[in-house]
Design a protein around this nucleic acid. Structure first.
Length: 872
RNA sequence: GCCGACGUGGUGGAAUUGGUAGACACACUAGCUUGAGGGGCUAGCGCCGCAAGGCGUGUCGGUUCGAAUCCGACCGUCGGCACCA
C-alpha cells in the first residue's frame, strides 16, 4: 500500500479486478432472493451530465449494498436512443442521426464504466436497434387487434413556413423556433392508445404501491383526474336548430349538476361542431375561431391566457325551465376534455365567473352556504362561491343539500332523456404518432383499395433507414420513396407505408422487461418471471407522471395479452432531485446576455459587505457578473459541470462521495466545488488513517471481554455507526447521514491514541467497518483499503456486517431534563433505572431546583430513556 | 391557471414516532507545523448579552406539558401540465 492516495491507480486496479471476474454479470438463480435495481435509462445526448451521475450512483450504492446483504442483484443499463435531439444534431451537422447516436452511446458507455458502476453490461439495450423496436411494432399490432390502438384526428402545432409539425419544446412564445412564424393548430390523423380504458385500474392500483412516494401517487391520481358527475343535454333553440339541424342538443359534462339552475350561458370550444356551423354564416365569428386556432396546444398556455369569447347569436334551452341560454365560443374550453362544451354558472365557478364579468353575462345564485358567515353572490360580485351548500331558486329542487340536489337533478334529467350520471377522466388517450424520422416506424400500410392495412407479423420489423439526413422541414421518411413505396399485404397492389413514427415514450414503456431477457426470441420470455417486478426504480422526479404512467399502462396491457403475470412494473420508486448550480450572467450595453460557468467566477465581499462576482475575460478584461441564483445545470445557462473532468482530477470515488453526501437523494442537489474538495479530503484522511494503522503491523485478535473503557467506547462508536449506516442505506435511503456516521467514526478513530495490542485490534475492527460501510459508495478505494487491511475476499463478495449487541450495550445513559419545556440540565442514570428513580434524579439536579424554586410541581412527564419535563 | 413539493446558521444539510434545534461537512477566524501549488494539525464558530439569561427553524395565528415536525391563512422558490427526455 502506498503512503499517498492515487485515485487513478486505485480505480484502475479495482475496475480491472471486477472486469476479470465478470463480477456483475448475473443469472437467474431460484435458490437466491433476487433484487432488480433499475435506474432510468439515459438519452444518449453525447456526454453524461451530473443528473446521470447522481441517478446511477444512487442505483449503484443500493445494488452493491443489497449484493453484500446476500441478494442476487441485477443492475442493467441501456439507451433511450430515439428522439428529437439526434434529428436536430443531424440537421445542424449533416450527419445521420444513427451515426451521431451510436457515437454518443460509445462515449457515454466509457464514461459510465469510468465511474465504476456495478452494471451487467451483457444485457445492454439500445431502443434504436431493430431487435428491440420490432417488439414495439409487434405489440402495437396486438393492441390494434384488441381495439386498444385506433386512428383519429388530433391537434398538433404547425409551423406554416417550414410546413412542419412542431414539438411543444420547439414553440417559443407562440412562434416556431427556427422560422419565427406564428404557430397554428392543425388537425391530422394519428394513432392513439386507449389508456383511458385502464384509467380506473391505474388509479385504484396506486394504493397497491406503498413503495412509491406519496407525492408521486397523488400527482398520478390527479393526472388521471377521475370525476363523477353528470352529462347534461341542452336542446337547440329554434335559432340553433336552423343552423345546425333540428332536434340537436349540446352535451356538457359537469360535476356540479346542483348548480344547473344557475347556468346563464353555454360555452363551447372553438373546434366544436356548433361553433363551426355558426361561423359559416357569421364572418366575425369565423375570424374569432381562426384567432383561437392560432396559438399553441400547450395546456399551461391555454390555462393562463386571457379568457376570450364571442357570442354565436344562437341559443339552447334550459332542460328544466326552457329558458333560452346564449351559446358562446370560448378559448378556455378544451375540445379534448369532456364534450368540448361547458355550462356557464358564473355564481359558482371561478372561471365562468371571470368570463361572465368580462362579457356582461348574468350571474344567478343558486347555492347558499350552510354556515352563518354566508355571503350571497351578487353585484358587485367579488368572487364565485364554489363550495357545497344548499340549493335556492332551483324550482322543484330548491332547499336541498348540494349532494342530494345533484342526485335528484341527475335522476330527473335521465327521465327526460336529457342526461345521465357519468364518470369523466381528465386523462386523455395517448397519441403516439410523431411526424418525425428518428423513431420507431408505425407498422401500417395505406392502400388505396384496402384502406389501412397492418403490416403482417412476418414482415416485422419495419426497419427504419439509417442513412437519411433531415433538413429541418418535414419528415425525411415522407420524402424517401425507398421507404414509403411498398406492396399492399392484402391485394398486392402498390401502396404507401405509414411514415409517422412512435412517441419515444413507447420505447421506454417496457425496456425494463427486455433487460431480463435481452436475447429472447419473443418479446419477453420466462426469465421475466424471475427478475420482475423491479424492486427499486430510480429516476428524476420530472418523470413522476408521464413515463411512469405509460409504463404502468403498457405493463397492464401486456398482462392482459397473457405476456406477463403481474400488473405493476415497479415495486419501489425513488425519485431523485435535480442537480443545480449557480447561474452567473453578464449583459453589456445592448448586447446579448452572456452566461459564465461558476468555475470561472471569483467571489469576494465588497466594501458594503455585499457579494461581488467577477470573471476575467479575454476581450473585456475583468467584469462584474450578476448572480442569478440557482438553476438546473444546462447548456444554455453555461453552468454545467462535466463529470469527465471531475473524474480526471479527483477520481470517481470523490465524485460519488460528494454527490451522495451533499443532500438526501429526493432533494435538489446544489453543486459546490468546495464540497467536492471536502469529499476528496475525507477519502485521503481515511487512506492515511489505514496506512498509519498498518505501519504498526498486524494486530492480535480482538478480545471483547478484556477491553479498557476507552477501547469499549471506540468499539461502541464503530457498531453504532454500523447500525446507523445499515438503517440509513437499507431502510431510509438517506445516504448523506450514513456517510456522516462514518465520518464521525473516523473522527473517533483519530482521537483514539492507544497503541496497546487490544487498542490496535479495536482500531483494526473500526477501520475495517468504516471501509466496508463506505464500499457501496466509494467502491474503488474501499476495495484497495479492505485488501490492504489483510482481508482476502474483496468487499463486493463480503457480507454486510451486523452490529454486535455486546458492543452496543451501555450501563448508564444521559437524560435531558426540562422545566416547562425548556432545557435545564442533563442527568446520568443507570439504563435499568425506573421512572421513580429518574424523576427523583431529575428533581435533585441543581439547575432544575434553581428553576423550580418554590413553585409547586404540577406534573412530571417522563419519556423513557430520553427526557424528563417538570411542569410547574 | 391547475397539480405536487420545498422553505432550518455565512453555505450544503441533521433532528427517523410531537421530546436536547444546528449532527456531519463547507466557508470563515485564530494558533501551531513549514512541503508557500486546492498540504497537515488544534481551537472557535446561530443571534443578542460581561454574565445570568433571553431570542431563534419563511410570515401570522392555533393545538400541546412540549412544535422545525400537527392544523389554518399568507408569502416565496422549484418540478409537471400530455410532441424535450
Amino acid at each position: 500500500m502506498h503512503e499517498s492516495y492515487d485515485p487513478a491507480a486505485v480505480e484502475h486496479a479495482a475496475q480491472q479486478y471486477w472486469k476479470e471476474r465478470r463480477a456483475f454479470e448475473v443469472r437467474e438463480d431460484p435458490a437466491r432472493t433476487k433484487f432488480y435495481c433499475l435506474s432510468m435509462l439515459p438519452y444518449p445526448s453525447g456526454r453524461l451530465h451530473m443528473g446521470h451521475v447522481r441517478n446511477y450512483t444512487i442505483g449503484d450504492v443500493l445494488a452493491r449494498f443489497l449484493r453484500m446483504q446476500g441478494h442476487n442483484v441485477l443492475q442493467p443499463m441501456g439507451w433511450d436512443a430515439f428522439g428529437l435531439p439526434a434529428e436536430n444534431a443531424a440537421t445542424a451537422n449533416g450527419v445521420p442521426p444513427a451515426k451521431w447516436t451510436r457515437e454518443n452511446i460509445a462515449h457515454m458507455r466509457a464514461q459510465l464504466k469510468s465511474l465504476g458502476f456495478a452494471i451487467d453490461w451483457s444485457r445492454e439495450i439500445a431502443t434504436c436497434d431493430p431487435g428491440y423496436y420490432r417488439w414495439n411494432q409487434w405489440l402495437f399490432l396486438r393492441m390494434l387487434e384488441k381495439g386498444l390502438a385506433y386512428r383519429k384526428t388530433g391537434v398538433v402545432n404547425w409551423d406554416p413556413v417550414d410546413q412542419t409539425v412542431l414539438a411543444n419544446e420547439q414553440v417559443i412564445e407562440g412562434r416556431g423556433w427556427r422560422t419565427g412564424a406564428l404557430v397554428e393548430k392543425r388537425e391530422i390523423p394519428m394513432y392513439y392508445l386507449n389508456i383511458t380504458r385502464y384509467a380506473d385500474e391505474l388509479l385504484e392500483s396506486l394504493d397497491a404501491l406503498p413503495g412509491w412516494p406519496e407525492r408521486v401517487r397523488v400527482m398520478q391520481a390527479n393526472w388521471i383526474g377521475r370525476s363523477a358527475g353528470c352529462e347534461i343535454a341542452f336542446p337547440y333553440a329554434p335559432d340553433a336548430a336552423g343552423v345546425a339541424g333540428a332536434g340537436g342538443v349540446v352535451k356538457v359534462f359537469t360535476t356540479r349538476a346542483d348548480t344547473l339552475f344557475g347556468a346563464t350561458f353555454l360555452a363551447v370550444a372553438a373546434e366544436h361542431p356548433l361553433a363551426l356551423a355558426a361561423a359559416r354564416s357569421e364572418p366575425r365569428l369565423a375570424a374569432f375561431i381562426e384567432e383561437c386556432r392560432r396559438g399553441s396546444v400547450i395546456e399551461a398556455e391555454v390555462a393562463t391566457q386571457v379568457k376570450k369569447g364571442m357570442a354565436t347569436g344562437l341559443h339552447v334551452l334550459h332542460p328544466f325551465t326552457g329558458a333560452p341560454l346564449p351559446i358562446w365560443v370560448a378559448n378556455y374550453v378544451l375540445m379534448a376534455y369532456g364534450e368540448g362544451a361547458v355550462m356557464g354558472v358564473p355564481a359558482h365557478d371561478e372561471r365562468d365567473f371571470e368570463f361572465a364579468l368580462g362579457h356582461e353575462l348574468a350571474v344567478t345564485t343558486v347555492v347558499r352556504s350552510l354556515s352563518d358567515a354566508y355571503i350571497e353572490v351578487r353585484a358587485p360580485w367579488i368572487a364565485a362561491y364554489g363550495e357545497y351548500g344548499v340549493t335556492v331558486d332551483s324550482g322543484e329542487f330548491s332547499g336541498l343539500p348540494s349532494r342530494v340536489a345533484m342526485d335528484a337533478i341527475a335522476t330527473a334529467l335521465e327521465q327526460k332523456g336529457l342526461g345521465r350520471k357519468r364518470v369523466q377522466y381528465r386523462l386523455r388517450d395517448w397519441g403516439i404518432s410523431r411526424q418525425r424520422y428518428w423513431g420507431c416506424p408505425i407498422p401500417i400500410i395505406h392502400c388505396s383499395a384496402c384502406g389501412v392495412v397492418p403490416v403482417p407479423d412476418d414482415q416485422l420489423p419495419v426497419r427504419l433507414p439509417e442513412d437519411l439526413v433531415p433538413d429541418g422541414s418535414g419528415n425525411p421518411l415522407a420524402k424517401s420513396a425507398a421507404f414509403y413505396e411498398c406492396e399492399c399485404p392484402r391485394c398486392r397492389g402498390p401502396a404507401r407505408r405509414e411514415t409517422d413514427t412512435m412517441d419515444t415514450f413507447v420505447d421506454s414503456s417496457w425496456y425494463f422487461l427486455r433487460y431480463a431477457c435481452p436475447d429472447a426470441a419473443n418479446m419477453v420470455d420466462a426469465r421475466v418471471d424471475y427478475w420482475l417486478p423491479v424492486d427499486q426504480y430510480i429516476g428524476g422526479i420530472e418523470h413522476a407522471i408521464l413515463h411512469l404512467l405509460y409504463a404502468r399502462f403498457w405493463t397492464k396491457v401486456m398482462r392482459d395479452l397473457g405476456l406477463l403475470s403481474f400488473g405493476e412494473p415497479f415495486s419501489n420508486l425513488l425519485t431523485q432531485g435535480m442537480v443545480l448550480n449557480h447561474v452567473y450572467s453578464y449583459q453589456g450595453e445592448g448586447g446579448r446576455k452572456r452566461y459564465f460557468n461558476p468555475a470561472e467566477v471569483s467571489t469576494r465581499r465588497g466594501a458594503d459587505g455585499s457579494e461581488v462576482n467577477e470573471v476575467v475575460t479575454r476581450e473585456l478584461g475583468k467584469i462584474r457578473v450578476t448572480h442569478e441564483g440557482l438553476g438546473k445545470m444546462s447548456k444554455s445557462e453555461g453552468n454545467g459541470v462535466d463529470p469527465e473532468g471531475l473524474v480526471e482530477r479527483f477520481g470517481a470515488d470523490t465524485a460519488r462521495l460528494f454527490i451522495m453526501f451533499a443532500s438526501p437523494p429526493e432533494q435538489t442537489l446544489e453543486w459546490s466545488d468546495e464540497g467536492v474538495q471536502g469529499a476528496w479530503r475525507f477519502i485521503r484522511r481515511l487512506w492515511t488513517a489505514v496506512y498509519e494503522h498498518l505501519l504498526s503491523g498486524t494486530p492480535p485478535a480482538l478480545e471483547p471481554r478484556s477491553l479498557t473503557p476507552g477501547e469499549r467506547d471506540l468499539r461502541r462508536a464503530a457498531h453504532q455507526a454500523l447500525a446507523k449506516a445499515t438503517d440509513d442505506i437499507g431502510r431510509r435511503r438517506n445516504f448523506n447521514t450514513a456517510i456522516a456516521a462514518v465520518m464521525e467514526l473516523l473522527n473517533a478513530v483519530q482521537r483514539f491514541q492507544a497503541m496497546t495490542p487490544q487498542g490496535r485490534a479495536v482500531r483494526q475492527e473500526a477501520l475495517g467497518l468504516a471501509v466496508l460501510m463506505l464500499s457501496p459508495i466509494t467502491p474503488h478505494v474501499c476495495h484497495v483499503l479492505w485488501l490492504a487491511l489483510g482481508h482476502v475476499t474483496a468487499p463486493i463478495d463480503e457480507r454486510w456486517p451486523v452490529p454486535d449487541s455486546q458492543a452496543l450495550a451501555q450501563e448508564t445513559h444521559a437524560i435531558v431534563v426540562q422545566v416547562n419545556g425548556k432545557l435545564r440540565g442533563h442527568i446520568h442514570v443507570p439504563v435499568s433505572a425506573d421512572d421513580a428513580a429518574v424523576r427523583a434524579a431529575a428533581l435533585a439536579d441543581n439547575n432544575v431546583r434553581k428553576f423550580v424554586a418554590d413553585r409547586p410541581v404540577r406534573r412530571v412527564i417522563i419519556v423513557p430513556g430520553k427526557l424528563v419535563n417538570v411542569v410547574v
